[in-house]
Structures are given as C-alpha cells and as structure tokens.
Design a protein around this nucleic acid. Structure first.
Lengths: 340, 340
DNA sequence: GACTGGCACTCTGTTAACGGGAGTGCCAGC
DNA sequence: GCTGGCACTCCCGTTAACAGAGTGCCAGTC
C-alpha cells in the first residue's frame, strides 16, 4: 500500500513535533498543532498504516508515536525542503571565519562554528594529503645524522617528520638532497608521488644513494601512511543537551567512538562533490553510534573535494536546519580555500 | 584538637573504601575491612571528630561518611605513600611509546597512554614555545606576495604561518630575508626574541624595510601570541565510568570546560620542576570543575620544564595510583625529549 | 580516661498499591 | 472515507509500608 499525501503529512508532523518536544506524539496533540483538517481518529488510522510500514513506532502500547530510522529517512528524502540560512546565521559564519590566519586556524574556527550553529558535535577533516599537491619540501639539519623533513602542500597543510640518516652528512649534501627532492616532487599530487620517489632513489649518485634511500622511505611513509588524515572535533558538550535520553541512557559508547579517528573518518569520508550526506541511525554501520545521525559534506575549492566535515547528533535532530548549515559552512570553507 | 594516629588511620580507611566502592562508608564496614583493632563505636567517635574538623561529612543523617575536599587533601599530603608502578605498567609505557616518530606522535601517544593507564581524562600540553629555542626559520614562497613562514624549534615543534607581503618579492629577496632572520634568531630562546626581531627591522636595508617589517610583525605574533600553546586531549569517555554520579548529575559542565584551552592550560600549567601537583575539587578555581581533581606534572629534558601534562577525574579518584602514573609518564616523556 | 555494647532513632531505597492521564484500537453511524 | 464514542492499556507520579544501614548517646568496664 502506498502512502497518500495526508499520511506523509502526518509523518512530517510527527517528526517535527517529536524533534521539538522529544516526546512521543499522539493523535490529539497532532491535530491541535497542525492544520491537518481531519479528526484525531482519522489520524490514528493513518498512524496505524505508517506503523505497519515501519516509519513510526510506539514505545509502548498506548503511548504516542515516535519516528523510526526509516521514518527519518523518508522525511529527509521526500519531505524536507532545504531551509535557507537565516541572515543571522550567514552573518555568524562571516564573523566567525574572518581573520583566519592559516589552515590550522581555519579548521579550528570551522569546527567550533559548526558546533555552535548546529548545537551538535562537529568534526572537520584537514585537507586530505592524498588530494593535495606538494608545494615545497624542506630539509633542516637537526644534528649531523638527523634531518627534519617539512612538507608544505598546496592546501596549506604542513607535515613534519624526523629522518634518521645512515651516516653524517656534509652541509652541501643536505642542500643537494633538498634540491633534488624538490625538483622531482614539487607541484606533484601526493597520490602520484610514490613512483617518483622510487625514481629519485634510482637516479641518485652512488655516494648519496644510502641517504636518499633513507629519506625516500620516510617520504613514502609520510605521504601515504601515517597521519595521512587529521581531524578536529568540537562541541562534545552538546551531547548532553536533551538529557542522556537521546543516546539510550549513556554517552559512553558515543564518546568512545568520537575518540577513534578511524571511525570519524568513516563518518565524514568518501563524500561526493556538492552534496550533503545524511546517515541516520544504523546506517552509519557503527555499533556505538546506533542512535546517532551524521550530516556531512565534502569541501574544497570549486567542485573538488579536499576533505570532509560534518556534525553528529541524536537521530532526533533538526535535519533541515542541520543540513542547511553543514552545506553552507562547507561551501564557505571551500571558497576560503579557493582564495589561497 | 589535633588528630591522633588512629583518627588519621580512620580517615585513610574511609578514603580508600569510598574511592573503591563509591558509597558512603559506615563504622561497621570500616572495622570489618580494616584491622583497626577497635570497635565500631570507637570508630564512630573518631568519625564525629573528623567530621567536626571538616575532613568528612555525611550525605544525610544516618548515612555513612564521605571524605570532603579537605579530607582528600589531608589524605594526599600526609597519608599517601607513593605507590611504585607495577612492572606491567612500566612495560605498558615502554610498549606504548616506543617507535614514536615525531613530536606530534609523541604527544598523541602520551595522552592516550595516560588516559588508558589512569582511566581518566588526560591532557598533554605541547612543549611551550616560550620555553623553546628557535632552531630554524624557513620562508617558502606561495605566490608573489605571499610567504609561508615555518619555524622549527628545538623541542620539535613546527609552527607555520602565512605572511602577506606588501608587494611582490624577487627570488633573491626571499633568500635574503631567510638568511637574515635565521642569522639573528636561530638558537635563541623564543622568550628572548622580541627585541631581536625589533633590531632586525632596524638593521634592515631601506629597500627591504617594508617586507621585513611585515615579516617581523607576523613573527612576533607567532612567537608570543596566538597558538603559543597547543594541547592534546584523550579519554573523555572515562568520565562516564562510575555513572554520572561523580559529577553531580551531569557531564555537561565538565565537557564544556574540557573544550576550553585556556581552562586546560590553567589546570596543567605553571608547574614546578620535578613535582606532581594535585588540585582537589574547588582548589582548581574553576566553577565547572567543582567536583573534579587534577593531577599534573611538568615534563622536559632533565630538570627543565617545557610543558605540562596531567589527568582529570572525579575528586573520588585513586590518588596514589594516579600520582605515580602521571609522574612516571612525565619522566618518561622528558627522557624521550632529552634524547633528541 | 579510653573503649565498648546496647539501644532508640533517623534516613534511604525498594516495593506495592493506586488513581489520573494520555493514548490507542475498534466499531457503529454519518 | 471520515468521525465520535467507548473500553482498554500502559505510564507515571504519589503514597505507604518496610527492611536495612548507620548514627548518637549512655551506661558500664578495663
């Protein structure tokens, strides 16, 4: 049986009321608050159907109805018009972000901004290295056998790494290495570098071969493996709004999940350009986050994506508002990055 | 009236039992669990005195006793023998920290280690810039009017900052600036740099004056103002152990406080060398953290301090164990830093 | 003088009973 | 297809009773 317009309207009303009041909503209250034009009894019939189809459920017999994950899904997919941001919100974004001095600063401001506007937990991924290009590599001698490798990318990220050399290096040698490495790698996308690094070693004069090999292995590690991704997090205190009710009694699993970078990356990673993704409840595939939803979006200059950002909150969240905010912030950050 | 040995023994027993069970402890239970050699009635008399002196209190008439902040204070100051770390813990530290590749890595590992060992929230401050010395400054051209300033310190920190130049720079000029800046500042403690930077501008040839002024102002900002301090945090999920009881009903104020860098810095800042500081309850002066205690310690190579680290938990915490762990980790990290 | 056993008292936390309230499902009628 | 009415269910807050734990005090003992 397909759902007619009124039933959808009833579902929307239930979601909206439940999000607002956090209490199961009954047929009477529904007709009082929304102009549905029918009686409670009729609404009850509709509710029975909606329940049968799995969009809403009753916490217990003779309680009001609560949306299920499927209900929210339907709501988000078919019943939501994107709420334009209020001028106040637009201004808040401007005011918050203006004057950011570097990437770190941008990321931190963004994550706080998101947390504040949505009143949820916010996550921002630093521009992904694999999607960046090398701008410059610097080698700084720390001792006779140690170098600090500093990599600057076109997205503004700066990664450093200590390199232990096989033997002492003369000043000129560091210089030479620095030159060669930059020659070969500067301007290249990080994803394309591994073969180039390989080549670098092969083309190297024999007397510097050992040092270069060493440097190359650290380069590869830095470029592709460890710390590929960095994250910023803010607004965990927002989890406590609305009591602990939202997360089936305890915040613990949620807080635990938030400490795992891998999990967070999974939540806000793999995004498509120019879309905002919504994962509702179970959809996020993470046990600890059964009763959480994630709204995320990729950001980057133009239509490319260099990283993801998003917010996490109870499934019972204001989807239209949150989606609008996340999208707006993602755009704003993208534009900011484009300017550099 | 001064407290005789047995009364102190009673206080110790109360603290230990309460920390373990999280329930008010009564006279009967006390004599059962500890060999005090006297009857419950006698213990009750002692308790009455301890209560009068403000070291313990009753949640309600006819409930057991609970230590007050003052009670914990006395316990920590006079009744605690530092518990040596178990071999298992020593091994855990080794295993956890071995293979750290750079400062970021060290800090992250440390904070997770601390959280795991103490089962509390852990905070680690990056080596403070003001206590570090400049090792090297690098200027990387980003566009004709933009430079990326990268500063590497002797504690391994790398700070970057974008510099907007007043006008286009020739290649040679960047080189020149880089040279001069390093000449003057490399090897200097950051705290001593402001007058040197000033000098740098004054000594500068007229045609480079504008550029140098610009660079200098960013340098000063980077060196002394913004982002002077960085922090890592872990283990917030541990706040939920022991129910929400520990923090008078809600985690919210605690989570809020943990998001404020300034607050955290206050908690683990200003430490004396080679000591472990304990702030109990109110002592931390922060409203949101009334019922939290902080155990912190400075770390650094040798007896110098370059940063602080510590853990935060309910006043009802295992002080001897926590103190021992924090101290051991601080030493370990200090030694690690000394090696570089 | 310090310690102890005994005893009356207080307070908590749990359980059970109860009634009001909210909400439902169903049915007969419009 | 919608509606009003009605019986039923379940929750939640209140109240009462009660067992348990712990106390303070007092009189007695070493």
């Amino acid at each position: 049986m397909s759902l007619d317009d009124r039933k959808l309207e009833v579902l929307r009303a239930i979601v909206e009321d439940y999000v607002e009041t956090q209490e199961p909503v009954g047929s009477k209250a529904l007709v009082d608050r929304h102009r549905l034009g029918v009686s409670p009894a009729t609404v009850r019939n509709d509710m029975a159907v909606l329940e049968e189809e799995g969009y809403i459920r009753q916490p217990h017999t003779s309680a009001g109805r609560v949306p299920t994950d499927a209900g929210y899904r339907l709501f988000v997919d078919r019943l939501t018009k994107i709420k334009p941001l209020s001028p106040a919100e637009r201004r808040a974004i401007e005011r918050f972000m203006v004057g950011a001095v570097d990437l770190d600063d941008v990321v931190h401001r963004t994550v706080r901004l998101l947390a504040q506007l949505t009143r949820q937990v916010a996550v921002v991924q630093y521009p992904s290295l694999s999607r960046s290009a090398v701008r410059h590599l610097e080698l700084v001698p720390i001792s006779t056998t140690r170098l600090m490798l500093v990599m600057i990318t076109d997205t503004g990220r700066v990664e450093q790494r200590l390199v232990e050399m096989p033997g002492p290096l003369a000043d000129g040698e560091v210089w030479e290495l620095r030159l060669r490495v930059n020659e070969k790698l500067a301007g290249q996308r990080l994803a394309d570098t591994p073969p180039l690094v390989q080549k670098l070693v092969e083309d190297c004069a024999a007397e510097r071969r050992a040092a270069m090999t060493c440097l190359a292995s650290v380069l590869l590690e830095t470029l592709v493996e460890r710390s590929e991704e960095r994250l910023a997090l803010a607004g965990t205190a927002n989890l406590t709004r609305g009591g602990v009710l939202d997360f089936q009694g305890t915040l613990r699993p949620v807080l635990e999940a938030l400490e795992e970078e891998v999990i967070l990356l999974k939540l806000i990673g793999d995004l498509e350009p120019r879309t905002t993704r919504v994962l509702i409840g179970d959809e996020n595939q993470i046990d600890n986050l059964r009763s959480a939803s994630v709204v995320s979006s990729g950001y980057g200059p133009g239509t490319t994506i260099v990283g993801g950002l998003g917010v996490l909150g109870p499934t019972r969240m204001d989807y239209p508002g949150t989606i609008a905010t996340v999208r707006a912030v993602a755009r704003y950050v993208g534009d900011l990055l484009a300017q550099n």
